[in-house]
Design a binder for these strands. Structure first.
Lengths: 216, 216
DNA sequence: AGGAACATACTACCACGTAGGTTTTTCTTC
DNA sequence: GAAGAAAAACCTACGTGGTAGTATGTTCCT
């Protein structure tokens, strides 16, 4: 039974189906993170899985649906990582922002194959070419706004509380997101010194940098 | 007379040849910045120029050479933009860093078609597949190190002078570069309110954010 | 027995780079 | 300055290989 991207939630899949679809998504994320969307073939993804592309087309209608599905999953995880600290209105804004950036950076490192090329608008544009992508892309755009709004909200509240400096909030948020999102360009999970402790250290440093860039 | 990427400097070209090769590079930068390396065909580049791909192959040996040539030119410009403020040892480190980031951000906005996908390691990896790319890639890597060393040097000197906080210098530099380089993801030269003054404002804000993230 | 899951073979199209041809420009000779 | 030759610049057609997606067949699971 095939599906478009992100249609997991609008059709109940049996656990076995879900496990298979997810296994395919994981392999696709790995394959795409190495060579990008256009230069990765469906056969490449099948090679990672040790099967043939017929299996993939059984669960996903097109290559674009596969890629969009990855980004959808990445956004779900990103919201799960950053949502909880974003809701900590009991904390002062600086601490709240610090924890958001910290969790965001950890998430990026822990799910690096999902957080790679799908971040690029160019890749998403390519993947969404073709028919029947409007609904999925609307959902993706909505989730992106929701995610970015978490940051905009905390920065606005920080400015209002005079904990953050009174600058262009959207630019500050973009700079913060830049410091985090650019990590995919230099962080590699296969580095010899990579470890949970090293990831915590990196996340803390990136969070410290971002918060200091914003505080009053 | 054909060339690989970056061979401009190892063979004297007549002004007419240089102008043509440069016109092709500009068109290629525009085309690649829209769809990325793999999804852009040589025919697409020729369409931007209003000619056919035979003309392009007259000056560039392969598609990869064309793309690497763009990145080479981008790095030259980046060094030209950031080098002068980096050399201002008469300024204190914070002001020096501020001017470097400011010029870097302006450069990225003013040359956005050259600063797009070529920034991504994945794209460079794809373009450098194929024969006879080692020398060019060595040159590119050398220029990248030279560029990043400008930032590392100013941050190290700032730490030594106690103007910057004593943290992981390489991480701080990566965070700074992240805030700037991610601009290609959200800055668009075709936005209605784009103007030289708006670019100056954005560059100043990004520079302020970066410096504050680093100062003691 | 029937449907799901997956493999195989196929179609249609696209793209890189080349070879050969044509046109334009440059150079040499008178 | 003109004419002719040579080289450069560019165009067209082609060969080869690759890829997305489909149709059909086979195997496995319910």
């Amino acid at each position: 039974m095939r599906q478009g991207a992100a249609s997991d939630s609008d059709r109940e899949l049996r656990p076995k189906q879900k496990a298979s679809a997810r296994e395919i998504l994981d392999a696709a994320a790995t394959a795409f993170s190495e060579r990008g969307y256009a230069a990765t073939s469906i056969d490449d993804v099948a090679d990672v899985l040790g099967c043939t592309k017929g299996r993939i087309y059984h669960y996903y209608r097109t290559k674009g649906d596969l890629f969009i599905g990855i980004h959808h999953q990445a956004l779900e995880w990103a919201l799960e990582a950053v949502g909880p600290p974003a809701e900590r209105v009991d904390l002062d804004p600086a601490e709240r922002l610090r924890q958001m950036v910290h969790q965001h950076a950890l998430h990026l490192m822990n799910r690096s194959s999902y957080m790679g090329p799908a971040q690029y608008q160019i890749e998403m544009n390519l993947a969404s070419e073709g028919r029947n992508k409007e609904a999925q892309m609307q959902k993706i755009l909505s989730m992106r706004r929701q995610f970015e709004d978490l940051y905009v909200t905390v920065v606005k509240e920080g400015v209002a509380a005079k904990a953050f400096r009174d600058a262009d909030v959207n630019l500050l948020v973009k700079a913060v997101l830049g410091a985090v999102n650019w990590m995919h360009a230099w962080f590699s999970p296969t580095e010899p010194k990579d470890s949970p402790a090293e990831r915590e250290r990196i996340a803390a440093e990136i969070a410290e940098f971002a918060v200091r860039g914003v505080v009053a």
